[in-house]
Amino acid sequence: MKKITLLLALLFIILSNVVNAQTYKTRDANIFFNPNKDQSHKDYASVSKEGTAVLKVETNEVALLVPMKTFHFNNALLEEHFNENYLHTNKFPNATFKGKLIGFNKDQLAKDGTYTMSSEGQVSLHGVTQNFKAPVKLVVKGKSATFTCNFKIRADQYAIDIPALVKPKLSDETPIDANIVFQLN
């Protein structure tokens, strides 16, 4: 009798794993932004390579969380300003996205190729939540699925205060590139 119990328990564990297997997760999502007015300059650009992303295949749901302190700059003073004066990262430690991939289906993961779709949902940044919609490109190659999403945000949308002295050097809309690679299994 005990064996049956164990067996059943095991079966359920396996089953629940099967359910979980439909969720892909990565801990090294790349988020890059370049607020320079002249995009060929990258002096204010920054990148975080420590975002966490999950994709639930059946429901097309995606979520992304980026700890703000993982954004690093080439100038230590800029990084300090980013944390202390602009994004107040002690108070708002994470940027998040929660939404759906429209036009995604799990068959795409099974076959190499490039697919286009769009993501829709909400972005939370600096304590402000905004609706979000942007085109997404998916490249499936062997065991990896790469989602890229290039979009733009405006600082004032997220209540980020840019002093008048700095404003002329920055573009009105900051381009952001998200690059998320899931390892398929």
């Binding site: 979520a63 969380l65 994470n94």
Partner: peptide, 21 residues
């Protein structure tokens, strides 16, 4: 067991990430 499986299936994705973080 089934409760856990279902709970897993229903939980919101971002909530899990925030909890993990």
């Amino acid at each position: 067991c089934s409760f856990f499986v279902r709970a897993n299936a229903q939980d919101d994705l971002l909530g899990d990430l925030v909890k993990e973080d």
